[in-house]
Amino acid sequence: MQTATTDYRKYLDPTVLAKISGLELRARLIVEGFFSGIHHSPQRGLSVEFADHRAYTQGDDLRHIDWKVYGKTDKYFIKEYEQETNLNLMLVVDCSESMSYRSGNEGMTKHEYATAVAAAVAYLTLQQQDSVGLTLFDEHLTHFMRPSNNAHHWKTLVHELAGKTGPAKTSIGRVLAELSERLNHRLLIILISDLFDVPEAILKGLKQLRYRRHEVIVWNLWDAAELTLPFSGPTMFDGLESTGRLLTDPRSLRARYVEEVERFQAQLRTGCGHMLIDYTVFSTAMALDVALSGYLATRAARLRQHSSRVLGGG
């Protein structure tokens, strides 16, 4: 088995994964590789939570009698644990045209990367008996699946994720507002997108989600070339999503471009920080398990820090 787990890890490079057709297999590989890397989940057992007491009736398992309550009240009460999921996750994946970009001939498009990550997270979540929902969008919400922990749910979800990107533009602010209208229960929302929209509109949409007390995680996905503009020589850039075209020597614009990108990211990071939204930048050049585990470790550490701060304050 050890050999098998080693084999899984080498498939986690996006360039290798890109060669594997079938999102389901990709996601399984990512998750198996992920597990083989961590061995023990720090989240094990957290899903079994105390829910309520009820009076003992005949036939109940004696192991579940709360003896502390009996000592205080001389009545038999049975401790009830909630078997329902402790996590309702909504994956919100961008399917606009800009997500179809891929630099070079190898590797994955942003959309492929996003769907692979989303499928893997969904698989993980379902493995832990949690519920997972899915929202796909471009200019509008194109697909909406309520969270479920049904064992077959994952297949449906993967099937939906495997769809292609359309020619539509991104309009994240409007989509998030629309989404917040649809979600009644409190959810953990993971937004996977390149966020190529006006930062103010994005932040406004996120604010509406937070207002509804959803926990939001933003995974800002970039192609490696979009971060560094590594081209040289006269180049005609044909903007996706009908954003125009530009003939220029990229070398002369590189510094300014990188600066623009960093400013955009900084603006989002600051805005998200104020709303206690977790904002992370992902590059399609990053190995998926590393991206996932790196993110989860960071998030766990942040949660611990957050809870300790709350306890210390209480």
């Binding site: 045209e97 800009s98 997500m99 179809s100 970009y101 942003k110 390149d194 190529f196 970039w222 192609d223 979009e226 503009l229 081209f231 020589g233 006269p234 180049t235 005609m236 850039f237 044909d238 903007g239 996706l240 999503e241 954003t243 125009g244 530009l246 003939l247 220029t248 614009l253 300014r256 471009y257 600066e259 623009e260 990108v261 955009f264």
Partner: peptide, 18 residues
Amino acid sequence: RRFRRIPWAAMSFLLAAN
């Protein structure tokens, strides 16, 4: 005249930089 053509998603940043 002899430029290469690249489809580009992050156009807004490029235009801004330009």
